[in-house]
Write a protein that binds this DNA or RNA. Structure first.
Lengths: 152, 152
DNA sequence: GCTGAAAATCACATTCC
DNA sequence: GGAATGTGATTTTCAGC
């Protein structure tokens, strides 16, 4: 799909706030309401916009502790890898999991309440998955930047 | 703020899809439309719901390459740290930046088109920030899990 | 805090340029 | 491809429980 400047600005606006009415968007983009509507439908049907979600302030729900966990598997047979990936995906505390290059196999972003909860997560959830060789955790001291918006 | 089970289910639903109508939500939660409306307003005003955003399928906008960059600063004086954090926050390719514990000072999540773009990002954007001591990059081979939804 | 109905606003399809 | 109109749906407010 090709995007003109209006599409790019529209995507930026919707990534900032998707609850804006088409009338508000039409004012910002100097377009008619219908034009905005049709452009959005095009972006939705083309799979560019995958979803509309509410973002939650994690401090307000007592999930202030964030950590990144490196994980190395014991073996890398297809069966081991698939089972690890399937099991780790079901853990609520794991928001993201990536297979990465480098010394470790996986990088996980984990959100819990505090250090005590993190310990419990490690002992009772993460390391109960078999095939894990070693782990290395990094704790987030401060969140400098965090956005879901990608510049088109 | 205290959340009852209905609040928790409502937050889960809105984190999945915030474009559902209050009528749809009222059916799923066995509540009236107004009750849903008032609970959502309460969550918005209480700062629990911080934002409603469109999520974009990054492959469709030619940003298929993701990397995590570890960064160590030369010095850790307040001035150096503040300038680094300010400058890195302005870079579009950097979606997230965390000050973390461990061998490195910062962890960045970076999204670009491909390896060539990543090289350009490193040379022209990231390393033009002064005070950077060393960097270590990890490339994402596969995205196993990626959600913005936090379980309350 | 919940319900139900009225009022205001918006989304969406159609028509036309 | 974009603009104007009209209908149905949705949000929002309000009275009452």
């Amino acid at each position: 799909m090709v995007f003109d400047e209006t599409d790019k600005r529209l995507l930026a606006l919707l990534q900032q706030d998707c609850k804006q009415t088409n009338k508000e968007l039409s004012n910002k983009l100097n377009l008619s309401v219908t034009a905005v509507y049709e452009r959005i439908k095009k972006l939705e049907k083309g799979g560019v916009i995958s979803n509309y979600v509410a973002l939650i302030n994690k401090e307000t729900i007592d999930k202030s502790f964030m950590a990144f966990c490196h994980i190395k598997l014991i073996q890398h047979s297809k069966d081991f890898v698939m089972r690890f990936e399937k099991e780790v995906s079901t853990i609520d505390e794991v928001l993201e999991c990536y297979h990465i290059s480098g010394d470790y196999d996986y990088l996980l972003k984990v959100i819990v309440k505090d250090m005590a909860s993190f310990r419990e997560f490690m002992v009772k959830k993460l390391t109960t998955i078999n095939h894990i060789g070693s782990t290395h955790s990094m704790f987030v001291i401060n969140e400098v930047k965090h956005t879901t918006a990608i510049t088109v």
